[in-house]
């Protein structure tokens, strides 16, 4: 079943995407090459994730591996929430 986390992430990303004229986006599409996330937008996304899910995202985790696609962001945040269980997110 689709996680609530992922749908919230998708909703936030789509809101930004629509403002840039993109109405269709798959969870595996690159947010960078579609022009949705630019260097400023990435920090808005980070603030959204921090506020919505109560995670802290240090600068060295704000990297391509964690933010390339909606799937990546979902995996990354899920890993952070489950970090106590020993899943460490990628860092620069």
């Amino acid at each position: 079943m689709e996680s609530n986390l992922k749908s919230q992430i998708r909703e936030f990303v789509m809101e930004n995407a629509r403002g840039k004229g993109i109405t269709e986006l798959s969870d595996a599409d690159s947010l960078i090459s579609r022009g949705i996330v630019d260097s400023l937008g990435i920090f808005r996304l980070v603030s959204f994730l921090e506020e919505s899910f109560g995670v802290r995202i240090p600068d060295d985790e704000i990297i391509n591996d964690n933010f390339q696609t909606i799937d990546d962001i979902d995996r990354f945040v899920t890993a952070k929430l489950g970090a106590v269980k020993g899943q460490a997110p990628a860092t620069a």
Binding site: S33, V37, S39, I42, D59, I63, N64, F67, A92
Partner: peptide
């Protein structure tokens, strides 16, 4: 993509 992530 590297250009968008300061740490990268």
């Amino acid at each position: 993509d590297t250009a968008k992530f300061p740490a990268s």
